[in-house]
């Protein structure tokens, strides 16, 4: 059973970097798990679908900007119920669900179990390596929720 953890987003675009940052924090914590690969990716769509090739299960971490949740709110959805996160669709090619349909039609080895964590973000259009405070504070919680989903013990991380 192979699980891929994918941190989606741009690490120099403010809160958009929450996915890659969580992935970077998770990688050393999961280094002992031969059944888990942690990856970072700038965009969804085709590229994400291709990155999932070979996984039985996937957990995707991304920013979301719904405007209807307090910043830092963490949501978890199975892909089929996903209301939409910031990078899950690549506007240069296609949405992830379509990309997965294409991949499956072509016989690729793609997971059926895909969960997406979205973190409500605010500042995603100005270049900076900093997260806003509520999103930075959500980072340890996000990391621990992923660890929990993988039956790993929680860790203590500074926000």
């Amino acid at each position: 059973m192979k699980t891929f953890i994918i941190g989606l987003g741009n690490p120099i675009l403010g809160d958009d970097g929450i996915g890659p940052r969580a992935a970077a924090a998770l990688a050393p914590l999961l280094a002992h798990r031969a059944d888990i690969e942690v990856k970072e990716l700038g965009m969804g769509g085709m590229r994400l679908m291709e990155a999932l090739d070979g996984a039985d299960r996937a957990i995707v971490l991304d920013a979301m900007v719904t405007g209807s949740n307090p910043p830092g709110t963490i949501g978890l959805w199975p892909l089929a119920d996903l209301p939409g996160t910031k990078n899950i669709t690549c506007l240069h090619d296609t949405r992830l669900i379509t990309a997965l349909e294409v991949g499956r039609a072509l016989g690729m080895d793609l997971p059926t179990n895909i969960d997406v964590f979205g973190v409500e973000a605010t500042a995603v259009d100005t270049f900076t390596e900093s997260l806003t405070l509520p999103v930075a504070q959500a980072l340890p919680t996000l990391v621990n929720r992923v660890l929990e989903a993988l039956s790993e013990p929680p860790v203590s991380l500074c926000a």
Binding site: M46, E50, T98, V102, G103, A105, L106
Partner: peptide, 26 residues
């Protein structure tokens, strides 16, 4: 009107070529 529709119209073989082209160039 998306990639899946294109693959359906042109054929799975074409879809496989697209994916293979992306993969080998990546």
């Amino acid at each position: 009107r998306n990639l899946l529709g294109v693959v359906r119209k042109v054929g799975l073989d074409a879809g496989q070529k697209v994916i293979a082209t992306r993969k080998r160039n990546h």
